[in-house]
Structure formats: structure tokens, C-alpha cells
Amino acid sequence: MEPLSALIDSILSASVDLTALAILLVFLPLFVVFTARGKAGYRFGLRPIPLYSRIRQLASHATESGSPLQVSLGSGQIGSEATPEAAMALTVFDYVARHAATCAQPIHGVSGDATLMAAAQGVLQNARQESGYPENYAGRECTFYGPDPLAYAAGAAGTFGADNHLALIALGEFGAEGLWLSEALADQATTRMGGTSDPSAAALMAASLDEAVIGEDVYAAGAYLHRPSHLGSLAAQDILRLVIMLAIVVGVIMTSLGYWS
């Protein structure tokens, strides 16, 4: 036990990033409480985000028509700082894939990162298996066009036209390739929608896509696509946002009055 207690002592005496820890400690209880309420069936009010309504409708439409949707998952590597954005891309892909899998319809996922492609394959395999059609799973439904963003955009645009897709959903981590992909498909009479959290890339995509989300709206995908646990964390985010707003206002006043330098 002595080495263990020595280890604990040494960890406690080690330097800790107190600001980050404080933010986490404020957020964690809010997150736990609201997530539990969300999972218990409490309905939180959601403002309409047209993109997610259209994704729901198009997922059903694609299932009925038999034309697949193409989900472009972006270039966010799982394991990097883009992991949360990649997770949201996978959430959207999961939703669309389950719809398609229930009726044994095709679906197409394109990613600009190999780890994301592997995860998307797992999601699709799961969806096909649970819908009772495991034999319909083919790894090639999730494709990868290299780690270069523009090569990825060119590959995604190339396959879109070739496979007669119903619509494009480009949600995840995108840079300028988001505009490239969207505009390359603008010539085709098809719906293009998506978004990214990077404001500079989102501005380009918003100018080009039929329907777009920017910034934190990307992280709300799960809450709008039938994941009750996401509803709770979204509410916790809103509370913390209010806290931050209050802190900014107080900070401005205190600094203006000369209490803080």
C-alpha cells in the first residue's frame, strides 16, 4: 500500500491546471443531472434547425426511393482534437445508415481520414446487422480518398455523380474542401447540406450549401436526431453558456472600474 499512497501523494502535490479543472467541475454536475433527465424522458425545448429536419426527411425519402444519400464525414481524425466533430459526423451517419439498413437500402459514407473510415464501417456494419440484413454489409460502402483534403473532396464529388445519389450531407471537420465539394456538385440538381464548426470554413460552406449549420450547432446533431442523452448535455451547455456570458459581463464591468488590470 505504501507505494500507492506515495503515488497518490505525489499526484496531489503535482501541478494541476486549475482553470481548466474549475470549468470541468462546474460543467460535470450540470452534465450528469441534465443527461439523466434527458434519458429519463424529460423533453427539452429545441429551437428548429432546418438542416436536421431535412436530414430526417431525406433519410426517409432515400429509404423509400432507393437512391442512397452520401454522407461526407470530413477529415477529422479520431484521436486528434477533431474527435468530437468526427463523433458528430458518425452520429449523423449512424442515423442515416439505420434508416437505410432497416429497408436494406444502400448508403454511402466518404471520409478524408482513415480512422474515421474505419469507425464509419463499424457503424454501418452494426446497423446492417441489427436490421437483420448482415449479408448486405459491404465494407466498400464507406470509402476513403486519401488524407489530402482536396483529393478527398474530388473523390467524393466523383462518386456522387457516378452512383446517382439523392443528396449530399457534408457534416464534420472541413476546411476549404467543403466549398470545393459543394460547388463541384452545384451543377447537379441535387440537395447539398451540412456544416462544420470551423468558422472560416463554415462561412464558405454556408454561402454554397442549400442548408448549413455553423459552430456549435454541429454538436447538436445527436439531440436533433433522436439521441435522448444528447438532449441533456445540450441543456447543460446552455446553462454553462449563460454562466460564461455572465462572467464576461462581470469581467468587463470589474475591469472598467479598475478592480482588475
Binding site: M88, Y219, S233, R241
Partner: peptide, 13 residues
């Protein structure tokens, strides 16, 4: 800031 909150929430989930 909003995206950071979303990131934290996703990571915690």
C-alpha cells in the same frame, strides 16, 4: 466558445 462547450460535452459523453 460555443464550439468548445460542444466539444467538452461530446467528450464527456
Amino acid at each position: 466558445l460555443g464550439a468548445a462547450l460542444g466539444t467538452v460535452a461530446t467528450a464527456l459523453r
